[in-house]
């Protein structure tokens, strides 16, 4: 990373931190090492060993997300809070948009709906714009796209009406070949990448809403449309930048202590933003490796 980019990175970190502090959020931190695996079916954590010469070694995992720790704090009565730091994900694709170690901003708002998070995001972008002029790909107004509707238009069927993988595959085949996927969730993802994502506007920020409830991790169901979750994602220039939701009180998995913590959360919404990707978009850099210190190199030459 060149020194100009490094200065901008440092400034943006400062600015984001300042924004949340001024909005009344408490900055928190989480450990890099965790004694348990985080319950996210599609995230593979890095595994390491705590060697203790006097006792048997213990396995630890590098945190792929601060979510569980932060929810424990909220259950203890912490106020609105945020985390801005490193998280680690193993088995991620090696691409210009992914890096196994990356910087994440995660914030939680009490007594808030997922739409309140959107208002916070808009204020954050407004603040960023005072020092980093927002490119057209990130400059509001956002375009709102409802996923059930997008599937009807671009894939020719309504996934809320196809509850099993076979019925979804049959419906999808009418608009073209369908990939081999064994689970409903995998096929939904495949169709999203094949039929929906290529058609999303790339020249302006897009908010995708109406994600499948069964495939939305810790997001609460939308009582008006139980098949969908109270969750939205921001895409800027085709890049997934923010994932936000109203948190569920009944998480699908996790140890009992975590489930108990979730039941105590009340009306809470949280958002995660890929900080390195935000910097990429703001500085119009084509690869994430250009905005982080000492990126791991693999077969990156293919992207030059």
């Amino acid at each position: 990373m060149d020194v100009t980019t490094a200065r901008k990175r440092a400034r943006l970190l400062d600015l984001v931190r300042q924004f949340f502090i001024e909005e009344g959020y408490l900055e928190t931190d989480v450990p890099a090492l965790s004694p348990d695996r985080i319950p996210e079916p599609n995230i593979v954590p890095f595994e390491t060993t705590w060697v203790r010469g006097w006792d048997s070694p213990r396995t630890y995992w590098l945190l792929p997300s601060p979510e569980r720790h932060l929810k424990h704090l909220l259950a203890e009565g912490y106020p609105n809070l945020f985390f801005l730091g490193k998280v680690y994900r193993n088995n991620e694709s090696f691409s210009p948009h992914h890096h196994p170690e990356f910087t994440m901003l995660e914030w939680y708002q009490r007594e808030a709906h997922d739409t309140d998070l959107l208002a916070t995001l808009e204020r954050l972008l407004e603040r960023i714009d005072t020092e980093f002029p927002l490119p057209p790909t990130l400059r509001p107004p956002f375009e709102f796209i409802d996923l059930p509707r997008a599937f009807q238009v671009w894939a020719g069927f309504d996934w809320t009406q196809t509850p099993v993988v076979e019925s979804m595959a049959r419906a999808a085949r009418q608009s073209g070949p369908v990939g081999k996927c064994s689970s409903w969730e995998d096929l939904w993802d495949w169709l999203f990448v094949d039929r929906i994502e290529p058609r999303l506007p790339k020249d302006r920020p897009v908010i995708l809403q109406g994600w499948p409830a069964r495939h939305s991790g810790q997001a609460a169901c939308d009582p008006e449309r139980p098949q969908t979750a109270r969750r939205w994602e921001l895409y800027a220039g085709g890049l997934e930048l923010v994932n936000a939701c109203r948190e569920t009180a009944e998480p699908p998995e996790g140890p009992e202590s975590y489930r108990q913590a979730c039941r105590k959360l009340g009306n809470i919404s949280g958002a995660a933003l890929g900080f390195d990707r935000l910097l990429m978009v703001l500085l119009e850099k084509p690869t994430i490796q250009e905005v982080i210190f000492f990126p791991l190199m693999g077969t990156l030459n293919n992207h030059e």
Binding site: E40, P41, H98, H215
Partner: peptide
């Protein structure tokens, strides 16, 4: 190009 939509698997 790699995509990991939402909470999904890499494609």
């Amino acid at each position: 190009e790699f995509y990991t939509p939402g909470k999904g698997t890499a494609i």
